[in-house]
Design a protein around this nucleic acid. Structure first.
Lengths: 232, 232
DNA sequence: CCGGCGGAATAACGATGTTATGCACTCATT
DNA sequence: AATGAGTGCATAACATCGTTATTCCGCCGG
């Protein structure tokens, strides 16, 4: 066999198995014993490589942020920055909708198991901060897009952080509620709530109604065309 | 002694104790044995009255929605419906910020413990639906406020459900992120993100920039005056 | 060839949700 | 008023989870 699997390999396999278990069986399926069985090892693997389930879950959360960043990074910048923001919102949504269990953990909405209170590890504040560190990269895409819109003169001059935070709040809130099942089936909510919400927010931030509507149409049409190639 | 505490009394005391434990010690403090000790009974109380921890947590979630509805219901309707919406948003936020642990459970962001997979109880869908039933009342305040704004001609004619859903997404998203610690300390986030977000959304939905800004100022000033009497 | 050392398997420990058993208490009926 | 049925609760055991102590295997340097 491959002589000795390096420590990094084992860690990666554990994270991968954790995400698989999470996606399939929900937070309650993310157990040390199942993880061990999944990679053909004993529960000690979790403790020698991570120190406990809590730290492993933290790594899973960071991996979620990394994947979100990767998906946002694939959104290309066009000459219509408002459309780009809408495309980012759609990419954000699709990432979460395709693996809601993972992002429930990533956003700290799911504390899989007993986990003995994080032990001497970190306090919750620090944990959150740590996870945030990885999430800041994802948020950065929104900040950059906001700056481009402001520079283009379509949003009023505003600190781009505040614009990005408002956009993030709206999109994140919509996605959270959609995944929780409070809106109709996906596409319906996107058409009647997410897109109008993002469009209206754009108008309120300074864009004209006509320009924002046009950008929304451009974004969603490009998105649907691209989505056809991918699935869903 | 009070002869026999009626079943309803015991249930109420359990819920009350659960919320107290939750607020103080977080989700992991919400345990059958601690609950029993808190009301001076054995763990069986949880099972005879609720059937298990899962059902009890569901009741806690519903109680959270009930309190949220009560707080939203205390917002008086003025002759400025846009200001009323902002006041509702501020009331929503304050309710959650004052007891984040409870609302983490209410919004399903926290699955306190093992809970043995909900047993023969309900599937997650049904659970969510059930909790929603109680949440619909809270959402109703937003729908009614949205209708008043549309009828007043300050928002474009739009199905009030969609307007309310967009407002809910934005406000809920902001609150979720603030409580998670992603924005600065409370008041800062309110001034620089929540209020501008709600104002911008109002403008995008049809209000004029000037009217929306004026309504925002009215709402937040009334709010601060009232908050002085309450605390925080 | 040998000694030490790091990592993993086994098994045990503490804690948690849950359940089986039996007892006490209440209420209705005679 | 006495008795029987029935209900609700306490005790204690069970299954399972995260965690840890112990042991052992395999590698690496001398």
């Amino acid at each position: 066999m491959a002589s000795k699997p390096s420590a990094a390999e084992v860690k990666a396999k554990l994270i991968e198995a954790a995400i698989r278990l999470l996606s399939d069986g929900g937070p309650e399926a993310l157990q040390a014993r199942k993880l061990a069985a999944e990679i053909g090892a004993s529960t000690m693997a979790v403790y020698t490589h991570f120190g406990g389930m809590g730290a492993l879950v933290n790594e899973v959360a960071r991996e979620g942020f990394r994947r979100l960043s990767a998906n946002l990074g694939e959104v290309e910048e066009t000459d219509d920055p408002v459309a780009d923001i809408l495309t980012l919102a759609l990419a954000y949504r699709r990432t979460v909708v395709e693996n809601p269990q993972l992002y429930a953990v990533t956003f700290g909405q799911s504390q899989p198991s007993g986990q003995k209170a994080a032990l001497g590890d970190m306090t919750k504040e620090e944990t959150r901060q740590n996870a945030s560190e990885e999430g800041i990269e994802a948020f950065g895409y929104l900040v950059r897009a906001a700056k481009r819109v402001i520079d283009a003169g379509r949003f009023r001059p505003t600190p781009e952080f505040e614009v990005a935070a408002q956009l993030w709040s709206a999109v994140h809130g919509y996605i959270t509620l959609e995944v929780a099942g409070h809106f109709g089936d996906g596409e319906n909510g996107v058409d009647h709530i997410l897109i109008p919400l993002a469009t209206a927010l754009g108008v309120g931030l300074g864009d004209t109604y006509e320009a924002a509507t046009r950008s929304a149409r451009i974004s969603i049409e490009a998105w649907r065309a691209k989505e056809g190639n991918i699935g869903t």
